[in-house]
Design a protein around this nucleic acid. Structure first.
Lengths: 244, 244
DNA sequence: ATTGATGGATTGTTGAACAATCCAGTTTTT
DNA sequence: AAAAACTGGATTGTTCAACAATCCATCAAT
């Protein structure tokens, strides 16, 4: 249902003739001083990122240039540029002369990803953060509770990601934030296997609550230790779900 | 002297006619099972990365597609793909409809970069590492001493980067390693201003030695604290050299 | 001095072309 | 029959040429 043939195209192009008034994709972030409209390639990348996140494109799947170009009403070269972006984010893998494939995470990659998370998240929480940022962490915890109450499995997963995103955001570092979102995107990629287990995130609710409490109480070192333990356990569980 | 007109091109292309036997650019890493030869776009990106690192392209400089395409004997589209890569690494910035420019680090960025380094490096050193990896750290320290003895200013800078690279490598995480090298590449980008001060790295030699000793002694927490202090001081010095 | 054209340069995107490479299926060889 | 060599088709890698959209500096007009 999420736009398969609607097209991405915005303005020019020899073949273009109609004059639809620029479909409402960019409403909010339009007029930021000097930060300009995303290029078509960017929008293609965004669309693919979305499909990746929603599990429409499963790990290992092949992405054929011409097919996608056609589906999105865009030229092959533009798709190529989008691929370059996504490859930089490790969401797809380019095999020269063979094509690009949705990235697959091996057992080793799981550990690797958690190593990054440990470094970033623990460091961020140990540094504390402004009251507003702490409040954002709290908000994510409550979001998780609400989703649990509503039996909204997907919402629970999202809340969990928001929680960890908010923790990293404590540090207020643009780079740390983007690194974290890339890592989370990578994980989402292969969560689609794990999420079949409905109770997957349930167990984390209490952990998140405890970590948040420690953070709010200013007991940063303890919060860090809790988070670290959490990540270790989470990694183990992940490893169990996947091969080896 | 570093190849300005020699060209990057490898194989095909309508305009190509000669038959030079593939200049010896890829000797060692050629036959790695299934890991294939880099594309032309990749080589263009690599060449630019090099020029960036060597300060041939200074922050803020404009990179015109057609010019570079011509200089490197490559098509504009290929240059474009290379730009996408570099933009993903934050080495260049794309301003829609205006062009790509060598990235410039503002005062805020300096702090941001150091925030990332604190997170990654401290976490890595606190985790310790195998004897070989510790040995690599030691090697970087000695490399620095040798450079100092030889009054090799550039070598000193390199050694320092190797030192910090080796520390991150302790964690044995592919992702952490690439993140670190990207960050270091970013820093190199604007070190060209700072390096005018010949004594810049001198002062760090003793610090590196102390950190390395603590690491070798297995006093990981202390090593982490030392490293943290080091980074804070280094950031302050950086901030002083640059605006505010 | 501000505002408004004008034109040139550069980017964004497309479409078409062709060489290089890979792959699966088929033919040949041993 | 198993292994090796040869197909042809599909897809990628790269180039080129074209044109719309956008920016920018210069100049003109108010």
């Amino acid at each position: 249902m999420t736009s398969s043939e609607s097209g991405i195209r915005g303005r020019s192009g020899t073949a273009h003739s109609g004059s639809e008034p620029a479909a409402g994709l960019m409403s909010g972030a339009a007029a930021r001083l000097r930060i300009a409209a995303p290029s078509v390639a960017d929008r293609v990348a965004a669309e693919l990122r979305l499909q990746l996140a929603q599990g429409m494109l499963l790990p290992g799947a092949r992405l054929t240039e011409s097919t996608i170009a056609e589906q999105l009403g865009v030229s092959r070269n533009t798709v190529r540029e989008a691929f370059a972006e996504l490859a930089g984010e490790r969401l797809v893998i380019r095999q020269p002369n063979r094509g690009v494939f949705v990235a697959t995470l091996e057992a080793g990659d799981v550990h690797d990803v958690y190593t990054v998370r440990r470094a970033i998240e623990v460091s961020a929480i140990r540094g504390g953060g402004s009251p507003e940022r702490v409040a954002a962490v709290r908000a994510a915890v409550e979001e998780g509770k609400a989703a649990a109450a509503a039996n909204d499995e997907e919402g629970l997963g999202n809340a969990n990601q928001h929680f960890h995103g908010a923790i990293v955001a404590l540090a207020g570092s643009r780079r740390l934030n983007t690194i974290m979102s890339q890592v989370l995107a990578e994980m989402r990629l292969f969560f689609h296997k794990a999420t079949v287990d409905a109770h997957f995130y349930r167990g984390y609710l209490a952990d998140n609550e405890k970590i948040c409490l420690a953070l709010e109480a200013g007991e940063l070192d303890r919060a860090g230790d809790l988070l670290l333990a959490y990540l270790d356990r989470s990694e183990k569980k992940q490893g169990a779900v996947h091969g080896k």
